[in-house]
Design a protein around this nucleic acid. Structure first.
Length: 270
DNA sequence: ATGACTCCCAGTGGGAGA
């Protein structure tokens, strides 16, 4: 089973690239479900027909201009939730759904997939930073309940937090900057403390692996980026994780997203 | 360097992203 997350930075612009990428994946192992961030489309404008024609079940949750998330799956998602229950939020940032039964799930139940677009936060001390902190605390509180209800769970998306200095191309320049502050990393640690693990770090990875590169200053060509797109898996799911990789190839497209997709491969337990 | 690029909605400029 293969899952993915991708901040597409406008699905209206990136739909052809998304469809092409999913088709290329299918040549080897098809993606079973993907969560998208920054679709920037209201639900009435979501490209339902094009995705349905490509075989996708669509759950979208968008707004005008900013944010917007979606869950695409081969089989229909169940128990779908939009945003964090009990946390009043005008911004569309979370979509969750249950995939009935992954291979080898046995009696363990379905796979809970949560796609998240964590607020950017702009700058430490700003109102947007406060919102990011409150949002992450609310996510933590809700996740505790989700984990109790769905032991096999993956939370993936654009976290807008670089977990450690090795996830930053220039840790000195980025020290205490947005994505790298101790406050943000502390909130991420609170999520991990619920029993989640950063799947990417379960495996040997190339050094200087990033998932985002600034559009400016030839950052991709110089490989100056951050790893801020993550897949966090629950303890019950961890034994099934077979791989977690970042696919840089779509970043080489013309008019690419500034983010690369992250892939999570699951296998039978053990 | 409060930059650089890209997207959006606007309407020939500005906010937001990261």
């Amino acid at each position: 089973m293969k899952l993915a997350t991708w901040n597409v930075n406008s699905l209206a612009v990136r739909l052809p690239q998304l469809l092409e990428w999913l088709a290329v994946q299918a040549e080897t192992a098809p993606v079973d479900a993907i969560v998208l961030q920054e679709t920037k489309l209201t639900d009435d404008k979501f490209p339902q027909a094009e995705l349905a024609a490509a075989g996708w079940q669509v759950q979208c949750f968008g707004q005008k201009t900013y944010n917007g998330v979606a869950l695409l799956s081969r089989t229909p998602a169940e128990a779908v939730l939009r945003n964090i229950p009990g946390f009043a939020d005008e911004q569309a940032r979370v979509i969750a759904g249950t995939l009935p039964c992954g291979p080898g799930a046995g009696t363990a139940g379905g796979l809970r997939v949560i796609g998240a677009y964590v607020p950017n936060g702009q700058a430490p001390g700003s109102d947007k930073f406060d919102y990011k902190m409150r949002w992450l605390r609310a996510l933590r509180d809700w996740l505790r309940e989700e984990l109790a209800a769905h032991p096999r769970l993956v939370l993936m998306g654009d976290f807008n937090i670089a977990p450690e200095d090795r996830d930053v191309h220039d840790p000195v320049a980025w020290k205490d900057q947005i994505h790298c502050t101790p406050e943000e990393r502390g909130r991420l640690h609170e999520l991990l403390a619920l029993g989640l693990v950063d799947a990417f770090r379960l495996f040997e990875q190339p050094p200087r692996s990033w998932s985002w590169w600034d559009y400016r200053n030839l950052a991709f060509r110089k490989n100056q980026g951050l790893r801020i797109d993550l897949a966090l898996v629950s303890a019950a799911l961890q034994p099934e994780v077979r791989g977690c990789t970042i696919d840089k190839t779509p970043r080489r497209n013309e008019r690419p997203s500034d983010h690369a997709p992250v892939l999570l491969t699951l296998g039978t337990g053990g």
